[in-house]
């Protein structure tokens, strides 16, 4: 199966990881957001058929949360990386 390159550990079988969902930043100030926008944050998703960014957790490994850029139609992993700065989400 898919080899997922963990930024710490290198390419490992995808079975070692847990999927964390598409990248979906949490509003930094939740109270400032109106009900509709908050509902969108909680429930609505881009669910892109194509290239998107998503979270992975190295569950049976180093415990790192990292991002991957993957084409969801082919499962091709374009790159994996750590967020540039703490993302607050």
């Amino acid at each position: 199966m898919l080899l997922l390159p963990c930024p710490n550990c290198g390419p490992r079988n995808v079975a070692e990881f847990r999927y964390g969902g598409e990248m979906h930043p949490r509003p930094p100030a939740p109270e400032a957001v109106d009900d509709e926008a908050w509902t969108d944050f909680i429930y609505m998703r881009a669910n892109k058929a194509g290239r998107h960014r998503e979270w992975w957790y190295h569950h049976r490994g180093c415990g790192l949360w990292f991002l991957a850029e993957r084409d969801t139609t082919t499962n091709t992993i374009l790159r994996t990386y750590l967020p540039a700065q703490p993302h607050g989400s």
Binding site: M1, V14, Y19, E22, N47, E54, T72, T73, T74, N75
Partner: peptide
């Protein structure tokens, strides 16, 4: 499957 995808390949797992 354990992660979201549009691929219909299937897996050994």
């Amino acid at each position: 499957d354990p992660f979201a995808s549009y691929s219909l390949r299937g897996s050994l797992a």
